[in-house]
Protein backbone atom coordinates (compact mmCIF):
# COMPACT_ATOMS: atom_id res chain seq x y z
CA UNK A 1 0.00 0.00 0.00
CA UNK A 2 2.80 2.39 0.99
CA UNK A 3 4.61 1.54 -2.21
CA UNK A 4 1.53 2.32 -4.29
CA UNK A 5 1.09 5.69 -2.57
CA UNK A 6 4.74 6.54 -3.19
CA UNK A 7 4.35 5.52 -6.85
CA UNK A 8 1.26 7.68 -7.16
CA UNK A 9 3.08 10.63 -5.55
CA UNK A 10 5.94 10.20 -8.02
CA UNK A 11 3.53 10.10 -10.95
CA UNK A 12 1.78 13.25 -9.72
CA UNK A 13 5.11 15.00 -9.27
CA UNK A 14 6.19 13.98 -12.77
CA UNK A 15 2.97 15.35 -14.28
CA UNK A 16 3.46 18.61 -12.41
CA UNK A 17 7.09 18.96 -13.52
CA UNK A 18 6.13 18.21 -17.11
CA UNK A 19 2.91 20.23 -17.41
CA UNK A 20 3.05 22.77 -14.61
CA UNK A 21 1.89 22.86 -11.02
CA UNK A 22 -1.72 23.52 -11.97
CA UNK A 23 -1.96 20.56 -14.36
CA UNK A 24 -3.12 18.26 -11.61
CA UNK A 25 -4.57 19.19 -8.25
CA UNK A 26 -5.41 16.97 -5.32
CA UNK A 27 -8.96 17.31 -4.07
CA UNK A 28 -7.62 18.26 -0.64
CA UNK A 29 -5.70 21.16 -2.18
CA UNK A 30 -8.70 22.63 -3.98
CA UNK A 31 -9.87 25.97 -2.63
CA UNK A 32 -13.07 25.82 -0.58
CA UNK A 33 -16.28 26.70 -2.46
CA UNK A 34 -17.47 30.28 -2.08
CA UNK A 35 -19.75 30.67 0.93
CA UNK A 36 -23.28 32.00 0.90
CA UNK A 37 -23.64 33.82 4.23
CA UNK A 38 -27.16 32.86 5.23
CA UNK A 39 -27.21 34.96 8.39
CA UNK A 40 -28.19 31.95 10.50
CA UNK A 41 -26.05 30.48 13.28
CA UNK A 42 -25.12 27.64 10.91
CA UNK A 43 -22.66 29.98 9.18
CA UNK A 44 -20.38 29.75 12.20
CA UNK A 45 -20.26 25.98 12.02
CA UNK A 46 -19.38 25.61 8.36
CA UNK A 47 -15.84 26.93 8.74
CA UNK A 48 -16.14 29.14 5.65
CA UNK A 49 -18.64 31.67 6.97
CA UNK A 50 -21.69 30.46 5.11
CA UNK A 51 -23.24 27.54 3.30
CA UNK A 52 -21.06 26.30 0.43
CA UNK A 53 -22.24 27.35 -3.03
CA UNK A 54 -22.45 24.52 -5.53
CA UNK A 55 -22.61 21.84 -2.82
CA UNK A 56 -25.28 19.94 -0.96
CA UNK A 57 -25.82 20.69 2.73
CA UNK A 58 -27.93 18.26 4.73
CA UNK A 59 -29.91 19.12 7.86
CA UNK A 60 -30.85 15.88 9.56
CA UNK A 61 -32.45 14.88 12.81
CA UNK A 62 -35.30 12.79 14.06
CA UNK A 63 -38.60 14.19 15.23
CA UNK A 64 -39.08 17.81 16.22
CA UNK A 65 -35.57 19.13 16.49
CA UNK A 66 -35.59 22.43 14.57
CA UNK A 67 -34.19 21.27 11.23
CA UNK A 68 -37.28 22.39 9.32
CA UNK A 69 -37.37 25.76 11.06
CA UNK A 70 -33.75 26.37 10.14
CA UNK A 71 -34.42 25.15 6.64
CA UNK A 72 -37.27 27.66 6.37
CA UNK A 73 -35.07 30.44 7.77
CA UNK A 74 -32.50 29.63 5.08
CA UNK A 75 -35.19 29.56 2.41
CA UNK A 76 -36.59 32.93 3.50
CA UNK A 77 -33.12 34.48 3.45
CA UNK A 78 -32.58 32.97 0.00
CA UNK A 79 -35.83 34.42 -1.36
CA UNK A 80 -34.52 37.86 -0.46
CA UNK A 81 -31.12 37.33 -2.00
CA UNK A 82 -31.54 35.12 -5.04
CA UNK A 83 -33.64 35.57 -8.15
CA UNK A 84 -34.97 32.03 -7.77
CA UNK A 85 -35.43 30.10 -4.56
CA UNK A 86 -36.89 26.66 -5.20
CA UNK A 87 -38.51 24.19 -2.84
CA UNK A 88 -38.63 20.63 -4.10
CA UNK A 89 -41.36 19.03 -2.08
CA UNK A 90 -42.03 15.38 -2.91
CA UNK A 91 -44.31 14.87 0.09
CA UNK A 92 -46.51 17.92 -0.55
CA UNK A 93 -46.02 19.02 3.04
CA UNK A 94 -44.53 22.44 2.41
CA UNK A 95 -46.80 25.26 3.61
CA UNK A 96 -45.63 28.79 2.77
CA UNK A 97 -47.61 30.05 5.76
CA UNK A 98 -44.84 28.68 8.03
CA UNK A 99 -42.37 30.74 6.06
CA UNK A 100 -44.06 34.10 6.59
CA UNK A 101 -42.56 34.66 10.04
CA UNK A 102 -39.14 34.85 8.36
CA UNK A 103 -40.15 37.70 6.05
CA UNK A 104 -39.67 35.93 2.69
CA UNK A 105 -39.99 37.53 -0.73
CA UNK A 106 -42.67 35.26 -2.17
CA UNK A 107 -42.09 36.66 -5.66
CA UNK A 108 -38.90 34.66 -6.01
CA UNK A 109 -40.22 31.46 -4.45
CA UNK A 110 -41.19 28.51 -6.62
CA UNK A 111 -42.45 25.19 -5.28
CA UNK A 112 -41.96 21.99 -7.25
CA UNK A 113 -44.53 19.46 -6.05
CA UNK A 114 -43.32 16.23 -7.53
CA UNK A 115 -45.44 13.14 -7.56
CA UNK A 116 -42.50 10.79 -7.21
CA UNK A 117 -38.99 10.91 -5.85
CA UNK A 118 -37.69 10.29 -9.36
CA UNK A 119 -39.37 13.49 -10.59
CA UNK A 120 -37.93 15.30 -7.57
CA UNK A 121 -34.49 14.10 -8.60
CA UNK A 122 -35.01 15.21 -12.17
CA UNK A 123 -36.22 18.62 -11.00
CA UNK A 124 -33.31 19.02 -8.60
CA UNK A 125 -30.73 18.10 -11.23
CA UNK A 126 -32.18 20.29 -13.98
CA UNK A 127 -32.70 23.32 -11.73
CA UNK A 128 -29.24 22.98 -10.20
CA UNK A 129 -27.77 22.84 -13.69
CA UNK A 130 -29.81 25.84 -14.80
CA UNK A 131 -28.44 27.90 -11.94
CA UNK A 132 -31.30 28.39 -9.49
CA UNK A 133 -29.77 30.34 -6.62
CA UNK A 134 -31.09 28.18 -3.78
CA UNK A 135 -32.78 24.80 -3.78
CA UNK A 136 -34.41 23.35 -0.67
CA UNK A 137 -34.99 19.62 -0.88
CA UNK A 138 -37.72 18.52 1.49
CA UNK A 139 -36.75 14.88 1.08
CA UNK A 140 -34.16 12.62 -0.44
CA UNK A 141 -33.27 12.36 -4.09
CA UNK A 142 -32.84 8.92 -5.71
CA UNK A 143 -29.24 7.81 -5.96
CA UNK A 144 -29.05 7.94 -9.75
CA UNK A 145 -30.01 11.62 -9.74
CA UNK A 146 -27.40 12.62 -7.15
CA UNK A 147 -24.51 12.65 -9.63
CA UNK A 148 -26.18 14.97 -12.18
CA UNK A 149 -27.47 17.13 -9.33
CA UNK A 150 -24.02 17.51 -7.78
CA UNK A 151 -22.40 18.20 -11.11
CA UNK A 152 -25.07 20.75 -12.03
CA UNK A 153 -24.81 22.56 -8.72
CA UNK A 154 -21.04 22.55 -8.93
CA UNK A 155 -21.17 24.14 -12.35
CA UNK A 156 -23.74 26.78 -11.51
CA UNK A 157 -22.90 27.44 -7.85
CA UNK A 158 -26.44 26.75 -6.66
CA UNK A 159 -26.80 26.42 -2.89
CA UNK A 160 -28.54 23.13 -2.13
CA UNK A 161 -29.99 22.23 1.24
CA UNK A 162 -31.66 18.94 2.04
CA UNK A 163 -33.89 18.50 5.09
CA UNK A 164 -34.38 14.86 6.03
CA UNK A 165 -35.03 12.75 9.09
CA UNK A 166 -32.17 10.34 8.55
CA UNK A 167 -30.24 10.55 5.28
CA UNK A 168 -29.61 7.39 3.31
CA UNK A 169 -26.04 6.36 2.58
CA UNK A 170 -25.99 7.82 -0.94
CA UNK A 171 -27.57 11.12 0.08
CA UNK A 172 -25.21 11.47 3.04
CA UNK A 173 -22.26 10.66 0.79
CA UNK A 174 -23.33 13.26 -1.76
CA UNK A 175 -23.45 16.03 0.83
CA UNK A 176 -20.44 18.19 1.48
CA UNK A 177 -21.76 19.41 4.77
CA UNK A 178 -24.09 17.64 7.19
CA UNK A 179 -25.60 18.90 10.39
CA UNK A 180 -27.28 16.65 12.88
CA UNK A 181 -29.94 18.18 15.12
CA UNK A 182 -31.11 16.77 18.40
CA UNK A 183 -33.60 18.37 20.68
CA UNK A 184 -32.38 19.17 24.18
CA UNK A 185 -35.69 20.28 25.58
CA UNK A 186 -38.71 22.49 25.25
CA UNK A 187 -38.87 26.13 26.23
CA UNK A 188 -41.87 27.07 28.35
CA UNK A 189 -42.88 30.51 29.46
CA UNK A 190 -45.93 31.06 31.67
CA UNK A 191 -47.07 27.52 31.00
CA UNK A 192 -47.00 28.14 27.30
CA UNK A 193 -44.74 26.29 24.88
CA UNK A 194 -42.73 29.02 23.15
CA UNK A 195 -39.87 27.14 21.58
CA UNK A 196 -37.27 24.44 21.84
CA UNK A 197 -33.61 24.07 22.57
CA UNK A 198 -31.64 22.00 20.16
CA UNK A 199 -28.04 21.18 19.49
CA UNK A 200 -26.68 21.36 15.95
CA UNK A 201 -23.61 19.23 15.33
CA UNK A 202 -21.45 19.40 12.25
CA UNK A 203 -21.16 15.70 11.48
CA UNK A 204 -19.55 15.98 8.05
CA UNK A 205 -17.59 18.80 6.49
CA UNK A 206 -15.77 18.48 3.21
CA UNK A 207 -15.26 22.23 2.75
CA UNK A 208 -13.33 23.09 5.91
CA UNK A 209 -12.17 21.46 9.12
CA UNK A 210 -15.30 20.60 11.13
CA UNK A 211 -16.20 23.07 13.84
CA UNK A 212 -17.93 21.44 16.82
CA UNK A 213 -21.52 22.20 17.61
CA UNK A 214 -23.83 25.00 18.59
CA UNK A 215 -26.74 25.12 20.95
CA UNK A 216 -29.71 26.85 19.39
CA UNK A 217 -32.84 28.19 20.93
CA UNK A 218 -35.68 28.22 18.46
CA UNK A 219 -38.63 30.39 19.39
CA UNK A 220 -42.05 29.90 17.90
CA UNK A 221 -43.95 33.06 17.01
CA UNK A 222 -46.34 33.98 19.78
CA UNK A 223 -49.14 36.48 19.18
CA UNK A 224 -48.94 39.09 16.45
CA UNK A 225 -45.50 39.26 14.84
CA UNK A 226 -44.05 42.74 14.58
CA UNK A 227 -41.26 43.41 12.17
CA UNK A 228 -39.35 46.64 12.00
CA UNK A 229 -38.14 47.93 8.67
CA UNK A 230 -35.14 46.24 7.19
CA UNK A 231 -32.80 49.16 7.51
CA UNK A 232 -33.68 50.07 11.06
CA UNK A 233 -32.91 46.51 12.07
CA UNK A 234 -29.70 46.87 10.17
CA UNK A 235 -28.83 50.02 12.02
CA UNK A 236 -29.25 48.46 15.39
CA UNK A 237 -27.36 45.30 14.67
CA UNK A 238 -25.60 44.43 11.46
CA UNK A 239 -25.03 40.82 12.42
CA UNK A 240 -28.61 39.94 13.05
CA UNK A 241 -30.20 41.58 10.04
CA UNK A 242 -30.85 38.39 8.14
CA UNK A 243 -31.06 36.21 11.18
CA UNK A 244 -34.64 35.16 11.60
CA UNK A 245 -36.21 36.69 14.63
CA UNK A 246 -37.19 33.39 16.10
CA UNK A 247 -33.77 31.79 15.82
CA UNK A 248 -31.08 32.73 18.27
CA UNK A 249 -27.77 31.11 18.94
CA UNK A 250 -26.32 30.40 22.33
CA UNK A 251 -22.99 29.11 21.04
Amino acid sequence: MQGEIAQLDRAIEAIRVRFGSQALTRAAELPPPPPWPSGTPLDRLTGIGGLPCGRLTVLAGSGTCGKHTLGLALLAAATNQFAHAIVIDPSGAFDPWCLLQFKPDLGTLTVVRSTSSDTAGEAAASLARAGAGFILLMGEVPEHWLGPMEAGANRSGAVMVGVVEAPGRAFAHASSLSFGFSRLGWVWERDQLVGLKTIARCIKNRVAPPIGDAELEIRYPVGAATFSSELSVFESSLEEVVEAECVSAVV
Binding site: V111, A123, R129, A132
Partner: peptide, 30 residues
Amino acid sequence: WAGGGGTSEEVLAALERLQERHGDGIVRKP
Protein backbone atom coordinates in the same frame (compact mmCIF):
# COMPACT_ATOMS: atom_id res chain seq x y z
CA TRP B 1 -29.26 41.88 -9.74
CA ALA B 2 -30.65 39.50 -7.24
CA GLY B 3 -28.22 36.59 -7.01
CA GLY B 4 -28.55 34.04 -9.76
CA GLY B 5 -30.37 36.61 -11.87
CA GLY B 6 -27.83 36.09 -14.65
CA THR B 7 -29.24 32.61 -15.27
CA SER B 8 -32.87 33.50 -14.69
CA GLU B 9 -33.87 32.56 -18.21
CA GLU B 10 -32.26 29.15 -17.90
CA VAL B 11 -34.11 28.49 -14.63
CA LEU B 12 -37.42 29.51 -16.17
CA ALA B 13 -36.69 27.29 -19.17
CA ALA B 14 -35.91 24.36 -16.84
CA LEU B 15 -39.19 24.92 -14.98
CA GLU B 16 -41.10 25.02 -18.27
CA ARG B 17 -39.47 21.77 -19.38
CA LEU B 18 -40.57 20.15 -16.12
CA GLN B 19 -44.13 21.36 -16.75
CA GLU B 20 -44.06 20.00 -20.29
CA ARG B 21 -42.97 16.59 -19.05
CA HIS B 22 -45.03 16.25 -15.87
CA GLY B 23 -47.93 18.69 -16.22
CA ASP B 24 -48.47 22.31 -15.21
CA GLY B 25 -49.25 21.46 -11.59
CA ILE B 26 -45.72 20.37 -10.81
CA VAL B 27 -44.40 23.94 -10.66
CA ARG B 28 -46.34 26.41 -8.58
CA LYS B 29 -45.80 29.82 -7.10
CA PRO B 30 -47.61 30.89 -3.93
